[in-house]
């Protein structure tokens, strides 16, 4: 399969890339290309110009900042996150999801930020970003702006990025306590999209939940933020009754479709089960005994 014809630009600075986007109507940014290139081959996408950002230095770093936030540059590959020895200490939710994104070969090439920009309702990273309250930093001709992920994604495969803006990094805000969390995904085989996935973020103050976020993958027409379920958790010590209530609230927040991956009821059941499992991992010892 061949994509439609396009012109290819490989700028070596962000400024050059942004001016190329501004000068060319129907231009598209190419980072890892693991969603864009298949879509171009199927002719679901046919940009006239591809602006390849892979030769721009300084976009491939990720790490904790002095203010406690965590930044992930636009060229950080899924595999960079999967193989990081320090990510788990700072961002357990992202560290848990990294090995479950696509398959090992796609992970060497595909990027975290590119995946969020692709805005596939079945994307794993969007759920993590929703759970963690993350933002995307976009750079355009007039400088940078920070956009919360729930505003950034405006619909399936749609974002609020302007035609002359590039998503340069993702930012996870500092935790207000000890950060805990995880990601669970049910897939029929490696590399498939999630039948259902749950991202959990907890900020613990001692054994009490100070802040919580739950993002759901593949169980609605967009990534779902299970806000009622996370509200149930705040102030609790993750006792069994709270966990059961959160699982029920998360399942109620979904609107899955029955398809070849499973029935709607099955997917709701998986979401409740995953929420229970993830929370049980972080249940304080005394709550388990009670």
């Amino acid at each position: 399969m061949f994509p439609s014809r396009f012109d290819y630009k490989s700028p070596t600075s962000l400024e050059e890339a942004i001016s190329l986007l501004a000068a060319n109507e129907d231009a598209k940014v190419l980072a890892g290309g693991q969603s864009l290139i298949p879509m171009m081959k199927l002719r679901f996408a046919a940009p006239a110009v591809l602006v390849d950002i892979n030769n721009i230095p300084g976009l491939d770093g990720h790490g904790a900042q002095s203010d406690g936030s965590y930044r992930i540059g636009a060229l950080v590959r899924h595999a960079d996150l999967e193989k990081s020895s320090t990510l788990g200490d700072h961002q357990p939710t992202i560290a848990a999801a990294a090995p479950l994104v696509a398959d090992p070969i796609v992970r060497t090439r595909g990027t975290f930020v590119g995946s969020v920009c692709h805005a596939d309702p079945q994307g794993d990273w969007a759920s993590c970003m929703v759970a963690l309250g993350g933002s995307i930093v976009a750079q355009g001709p007039n400088g940078r702006r920070t956009i919360a992920v729930d505003e950034f994604v405006s619909g399936p495969f749609q974002t609020v990025l302007a035609a002359d803006e590039i998503a340069v990094e993702a930012v996870i805000p500092p935790a207000s306590g000890t950060r805990k969390g995880g990601y669970l995904k049910l897939e029929r085989r490696v590399g498939d999209f999630a039948t259902a996935g749950v991202a959990l973020s907890l900020e613990m103050s001692g054994s009490t939940v100070a802040k919580a976020g739950i993002g759901l993958t593949g169980v609605g027409s967009s990534t779902i933020s299970a806000t009622e379920a996370s509200a149930v958790l705040v102030g609790s010590s993750l006792d069994d009754a709270t966990i059961a209530a959160a699982a029920e609230a998360a399942a109620a927040a979904t609107s899955p479709r029955s398809d070849h991956r499973g029935s709607a009821d099955y997917k709701r059941h998986i979401v409740a089960t995953f929420v229970r499992r993830l929370l049980a991992q972080h249940q304080p010892v005394e709550a388990k005994v009670a």
């Binding site: 490989s10 290309g33 693991q34 290139i37 298949p38 390849d52 060497t108 090439r109 590399g191």
Partner: peptide
């Protein structure tokens, strides 16, 4: 030819990539 099977895997700077999902110019 749809980024699923991995038969076209080659090493790109030592890392495995699906060569059906990388443009030659890259």
């Amino acid at each position: 030819d749809t980024t699923n099977c991995g038969a076209c895997t080659v090493l790109f700077d030592g890392q495995p990539v699906k060569s059906c999902t990388v443009f030659a110019v890259q």
